[in-house]
């Protein structure tokens, strides 16, 4: 049986290899701290396995997470100048390979979905092939590996070091932001352990008329929208609103379909992202890139869609999740 932990080790190993390359990358002004960040992140993926099966204490991992937060938070993670192809060269390569370039990329979702849907139906000597409950995640891993093989074959690229270096270029350009979603999940767990959910739940009970389904759904979606507008980030709004309304009221109390409530709730937050200057990278950067005089130009054309889709999301949850 293929276990999810093995896949986490593979991801950890990729981070460690890229981290060691970063340590040796003289073009990166912050190579020591950047290299430490990625290598330590890779190491946590291994150590976590023992934390999950409770054979190692969680405190050292907690300290490692705080170190990662400091390295990223104090701007100590930088990027080097990747040795890659230029714009002109890429245009020529695109002409040479044409639409074949899309094949490896499409391999990832196709293999991932096949693994999640078809593979669990097969058994091998009485055992399932993928660890139960982790088929999608393992499918993604298998999909990425198969796609890499297909890509190297289609592009006639014999060296594994080329995709590793190219991947490191992308990793470094994402920088610490890559870790933000996982840390927001951590924050959600801390909120729960500290009792934030129960407290917000009490406030919610006072606001919400008893058992009013539509009002509860609207509160969840509008809350996601408003928090996202204030914070500029739907990911950050999600732990707050889920602890407050999404989980205790909509899923536990009113028995909503959890995947529907959560997925559409997140999208209600995305509607907020369309309308806020706080999401600078999505709304203000394009205005600057396009040399617009009115830096709110994109927000003005996006906002009506944002408001209409917020209403759509409320109705989708109301009609389909209950």
């Amino acid at each position: 049986m293929i276990k999810a932990e093995w896949f986490y080790w593979l991801v950890g190993a990729v981070f460690i290899v890229m981290g060691l390359q970063t340590l040796l990358d003289r073009s990166n002004a912050k190579r020591y701290t950047s290299g430490t960040f990625w290598t330590l992140l890779g190491a946590t993926f291994f150590y976590s396995s023992w934390v999950v099966d409770k054979s190692a204490p969680a405190e050292p991992l907690g300290i490692a997470v705080l170190i990662l937060i400091c390295l990223g938070g104090f701007n100590l993670v930088g990027k080097g100048t990747p040795r890659t192809t230029g714009e002109k060269q890429r245009t020529e390569l695109a002409k040479r390979f044409g639409n074949k370039l899309f094949i490896p990329a499409l391999t990832i979702p196709v293999v991932a979905v096949l693994c999640a849907v078809v593979v669990p139906k097969f058994h091998f000597g009485g055992h399932v092939i993928f660890e139960k409950g982790n088929e999608t995640i393992l499918g993604l891993g298998v999909g990425a590996i198969v796609a890499l093989g297909v890509g190297m074959w289609v592009l006639r690229e014999p060296r594994v070091s080329v995709p590793i270096h190219a991947g490191r270029g992308l990793l470094e350009s994402m920088g610490w932001a890559l870790l933000l979603p996982q840390l927001l999940a951590v924050l959600g767990a801390i909120f729960q352990a500290a009792g934030v959910g129960t407290q917000v739940g009490k406030v919610t009970e006072k606001i919400l008329p008893n058992g009013q389904l539509l009002a509860a759904v609207a509160l969840y979606c509008v809350g996601m929208f408003v928090f996202t507008v204030i914070m500029g980030n739907a990911f950050a709004a999600f732990p707050v609103m889920t602890a407050a309304v999404g989980w205790p009221v909509l899923v536990q109390h009113l028995h909503g379909n959890a995947p529907a409530v959560m997925a559409v709730g997140m999208l209600a937050g995305f509607c907020g992202t369309l309308c806020t200057p706080m999401a600078a990278n999505f709304n203000l950067v394009p205005a600057a890139l396009l040399e617009l005089k009115d830096q709110y130009g994109p927000i003005k054309v996006q906002a009506p869609t944002g408001f209409i889709l917020l209403a759509c999301n409320i109705l989708i949850i109301y009609f389909f999740a209950f």
């Binding site: 991801v11 990729v14 969680a58 991992l61 190297m152 951590v186 801390i190």
Partner: peptide
């Protein structure tokens, strides 16, 4: 809590595994 929840939410960061093939393309 930091450690335990970080360990159990590693799945959030696994999309990094697709970076080499996307970078290659």
């Amino acid at each position: 809590t930091f450690g335990e929840s970080f360990a159990s939410s590693r799945s959030v960061t696994i999309f990094a595994i697709t970076l080499p093939v996307i970078g290659l393309l």
